[in-house]
């Protein structure tokens, strides 16, 4: 009982097979509440597949996923989003033909319950503008509220994505390679941002940049060929000879 209270997200025997190829093999993952947890591993280790299973964009072949003790194995992506599990995507997930403020507002407006109201003017959403601007301020986008997102830089798009995610007041955030494809400046910016928004939340992230992982994450799970290789804090994991081998190949 106390164990399920400690862990916000758990998988049991999570397995995904694609036509005879096992991408994820019997993964038992436990994510502690209010932890920043990283999922790492060499290319093709199954990180993104695990991620898509957790966010319900893929259906597991076998196994069970629980969130806050509730079985979410057969829930739909939109359903778990409404429970408070919000994901980000590898490519920045923004709505390019809208302004930054509208992007955040789309996340806020669902709670108003008027999202099917095609006869209501869009100005009825203006009462959400203050909250939207507040969230944009939090990620340092104050000057870009009216900007068309398509014209914004990559780093700013990622910041906007985080603001949009925060608008959902998520209990748990799943970040898919949040610093991928970024210059060093943007990496530092986004790392700081993640640290800031992690307060009072649980974060599970897939990340390639081990520098980011070492500064940010308390728990690290290493995947290899679809299975968990080892788990622990950064020091434990980085000193594990099996991890080195997985990344570098067998030492001669």
């Amino acid at each position: 009982m106390s164990e399920s209270g400690n862990y916000i997200l758990q998988t049991e025997g999570l397995t995904k097979e694609f036509k005879g190829f096992t991408a994820v093999d019997d993964v038992n993952l436990k994510v502690k509440r209010h932890d920043i947890h990283a999922l790492i591993g060499p290319n093709g280790a199954g990180k993104t597949t695990v991620f898509n299973l957790l966010t319900k964009f893929l259906t597991p072949t076998r196994g069970k996923i629980t969130f806050n003790g509730r079985d979410i194995t057969s829930a739909k992506p939109a359903e778990i989003a409404r429970m408070g599990v919000i994901r980000s995507f590898q490519i920045s997930a923004v709505f390019p033909h809208m302004t930054a403020r509208e992007n955040v507002r789309v996340a806020l407006q669902r709670k108003l319950g008027t999202s099917f109201h095609f006869w209501r003017p869009v100005s009825s959403l203006n009462r959400l503008n203050d909250r939207a601007d507040e969230l944009l301020h939090m990620v340092g986008l104050d000057r870009f509220t009216e900007a068309m997102v398509a014209d914004m830089s990559y780093g700013r798009k990622r910041a906007l994505e985080i603001a949009t995610t925060l608008a959902m007041e998520p209990e748990m955030m799943l970040l898919d390679e949040p610093t991928q494809g970024m210059g060093r400046e943007d990496v530092e910016l986004v790392t700081e941002l993640i640290r800031k928004v992690a307060a009072g939340r649980t974060i599970l992230m897939v990340e390639h940049n081990l520098g980011v992982v070492s500064t940010l994450c308390n728990t690290i799970t290493v995947l290899q060929r679809g299975a968990i290789l080892t788990e622990g804090d950064y020091r434990t994991v980085s000193n594990d000879p099996r991890v080195k081998e997985a990344y570098m190949g067998k030492a001669a």
């Binding site: 966010t55 964009f57 739909k76 992506p77 939109a78 989003a81 409404r82 919000i86 994901r87 995507f89 997930a93 923004v94 709505f95 390019p96 033909h97 809208m98 789309v106 996340a107 669902r110 999202s115 949009t164 959902m168």
Partner: peptide, 15 residues
Amino acid sequence: GAIRDNENRAKSLGY
């Protein structure tokens, strides 16, 4: 508009 721009993201926002 959000769905047309990025349907998966719209799903992950609970729609």
